[in-house]
């Protein structure tokens, strides 16, 4: 997706770096003759900024190495597996004086920036509470060896970080009140998380094998704001309080490549000294890593009713 965004933007990458040259060659088809390298240190003088889309467990060591080499970095989410790793990445960026941004692509759904501006405008009054529900039967994010191989690669880490990031962006740092999930020794497929953003209570349900409405509902003094969490929804804006003086949101087809295009533009804007509000910072990444870690630390078992053969469903 990142390579596609580069191609659509007319940007030729300085190098494609992957231990498997066949994979790089495949990705490099749009740019005949593009430099292909098995590791960044072999082409370190050839580029100024890097997009890091490696398996999650490699983010911290590779990003820190790049930052120390004086490169600006856009790293895929989740930024790091632990808050300690995330903090080390932010510290490395500060020490090197380089940019560290996180590729939270769902921030770049057009309605998200519109809703963010609306919430910040104060037109809706105080936020009274938030209810987010995310997931689908056979959620695609449940798949893939990379996700499964992670020690804690359940639904919270894999897809939940999208919404946790959105909540952090819109409402500020989150504190975990409770986390109930159905992991039985490994990775959770379903979780219910209660959070606080300051005084705002947030209820967040997420699932890998259960259809959820995939929206975020914000209960405000002026009424309900409901926004789609991903681009699969037929409409992005589902509810907005009546009588609010706000620039109307125009529904558009907002596919995933379009979001990656906007994300790339946001990163290049940041490189030009204009950091847009839709681009997640390294500090955001630390905040998300802390929330995930707290969820996995305080988790309590919430066994699905159908696990007990004769259970009565609730």
């Amino acid at each position: 997706m990142h390579v596609g965004a580069l191609e659509r933007a007319g940007v030729t990458p300085a190098a494609l770096i992957d231990p498997d040259p066949r994979r790089s060659a495949l990705l490099g088809r749009p740019w005949p003759g593009v430099t292909i390298a098995p590791s960044p240190d072999l082409v370190v003088d050839d580029f100024d900024a890097a997009i890091v889309a490696l398996p999650d467990q490699l983010h911290a060591p590779v990003v820190i190495e790049l930052l120390q080499a004086g490169k600006d970095v856009l790293v895929e989410k989740p930024m790091a597996g632990t808050r300690a790793e995330a903090a080390a990445m932010v510290a490395a960026a500060a020490e090197a004086g380089r940019l560290l941004a996180v590729a939270q692509v769902r921030r770049h759904l057009a309605v998200k920036a519109w809703a963010f501006a609306l919430l910040r405008s104060g037109a809706l009054g105080a936020v009274l509470g938030v209810d987010a529900a995310q997931g689908g039967r056979d959620d695609w994010i449940a798949t893939g060896r990379g996700y499964v191989a992670q020690a804690a690669g359940g639904v919270i880490v894999c897809s939940g970080v999208h919404t946790l990031d959105l909540l952090t962006w819109w409402f500020g740092p989150l504190d975990v009140v409770s986390c109930r999930d159905d992991a039985r020794g490994w990775q959770e497929a379903n979780a219910t998380i209660e959070l606080l953003a300051g005084a705002i209570p947030i209820h967040f349900e997420l699932s890998r094998n259960r259809s959820r409405r995939n929206t975020i509902r914000v209960d405000t003094e002026r009424g309900l704001l409901e926004v789609a969490l991903d681009h699969y929804q037929p409409r992005q804006l589902l509810a907005v309080p009546d009588g609010v003086d706000v620039e109307p949101f125009v529904e558009v087809v907002d596919d995933l490549p379009g979001q990656f295009d906007r994300q790339l533009r946001a990163f290049t804007d940041a490189l030009d000294g204009r950091w847009p509000p839709s681009l997640a910072t390294g500090a955001d990444g630390v905040s998300i890593a802390r929330v995930v870690e707290d969820c996995l630390t305080c988790r309590t078992s919430d066994e699905p009713w159908w696990m007990a053969s004769a259970a009565t469903p609730s």
């Binding site: 056979d138 449940a142 039985r184 020794g185 490994w186 990775q187 497929a189």
Partner: peptide
């Protein structure tokens, strides 16, 4: 490696 969510709940 598809649709493993249900079984990887267990070790």
């Amino acid at each position: 490696w598809w649709h493993t969510a249900r079984v990887v709940r267990f070790p």
